[in-house]
Design a protein around this nucleic acid. Structure first.
Lengths: 125, 125, 125, 125
DNA sequence: GTGGTCTAGACCACC
DNA sequence: GTGGTCTAGACCACA
């Protein structure tokens, strides 16, 4: 049994950045914090942030301009959605469905909860 | 940004026990590990396990026989379902729905995934 | 023969607090001593007081405001009465009746004592 | 606030002896444990037991035969009843009645509990 | 052997 | 500052 288990910190930072992209708080073309600034602001070793940035650059979500800094890529939003949607559907949903089985929650119940949740964004148009 | 944040260890242990009850790997009336055995097996302080057991006893999921040990309660399964269903619906589902919004996943997509998942338990009866 | 036997200290502290609630020396909404203040004032380990407060919070007799402190709950008085009435009837009264038997005191004698005690609140209305 | 507070140990030993007299487990004329035996059996300093015996001898509940030991007095039972009845009525009952007031328990409730307690010794004849 | 309790001290999160 | 949690170690009662 593992307690303090968690995803690598660099992936958590990536999630944090993706969250900002997905919620459009960070938009295409915007400069993001430098490796050192980010590291200082979240109190993490700069190498860890560098790894995050490198990973996100691989994913085409941010890009680097040597000597200038990192920027949100033009198609960061759809790429991030694709990346995270994949995680969500393949890693996360199966767990959710399993939990529902174990707890005896039916898909109809879930629909119910969805339709009656606080922020009624369901049928807005 | 928080990296080390987590539920208390004693609640994680409770979750582990609940999982075993829910999946019926531990059945009503069965003796569970003693406080000290459990503590040794998961490498945690006995006091922490004692707190878990005390919490689960309050919830009516396990019961104690002084000088003998702890046992799975007769109605542990339904009680655990109720307990966890609550968590699931109030803590977990809202997050899921928020993530779906952000990722542009519609409830219909989710239904789709549900109906086409591996173990086709959807409409068996 | 046991000399040092007693209820757990944390329960004795709970009794002390309940007493203050029952006699309305502590009223609904009042802040009570912080865990550390109480611990210092009664010369007990803070963990022990924390356990007492946690227990009383479970009972709905006090409530916590994170970073602020603990307060007497709105319906502390009735809840305390219920809690203690239970103790009185199930734990205490049987002992009293047994003692009366052993001492040859009849229930009528007890009624007599009740009606002639100092503060004649018996039949005031 | 005092926790390990209690009556003097010598009085607790006296209570223990009185209990045995009242329940007629020890009868008039029987020899009781020697000071040293009693002290050893309850793991207490012999001086403490000596004080108890001296106190009970003053009350006429036990008597001593020099070089032989202590014995239960002939009229130990009634004397003990008187002694304890006094305590019960003057020390104990007022507390009980006060507690009942604070808890909102009426004398009629108490009669009820008395008549419905487990061992129906109420109207045996 | 079982669990229950208390202590001392540390660290963390929240306000 | 507040409370929450965990640890290590001790002691007690019950069986």
């Amino acid at each position: 049994m593992e307690f303090r288990k968690q995803k690598g910190i660099y992936l958590q930072i990536a999630d944090y950045i993706c969250e900002n992209v997905l919620t459009e708080q960070w938009k295409a073309g915007e400069k993001i914090l430098s490796v050192r600034e980010m590291a200082a602001s979240i109190e993490v070793n700069p190498n860890t942030v560098a790894r995050t940035y490198s990973y996100l650059q691989d994913q085409g979500i941010i890009f680097m301009q040597r000597g200038i800094g990192y920027f949100v890529a033009d198609d960061a939003l759809p790429r991030t959605q694709v990346l995270k949607k994949d995680d969500f559907v393949n890693e996360f949903l199966p767990e959710v469905f399993h939990t529902m089985d174990v707890l005896g929650i039916k898909i109809e119940d879930l629909l119910d909860y969805y339709q009656h949740r606080d922020n009624g964004q369901t049928d807005k148009e």
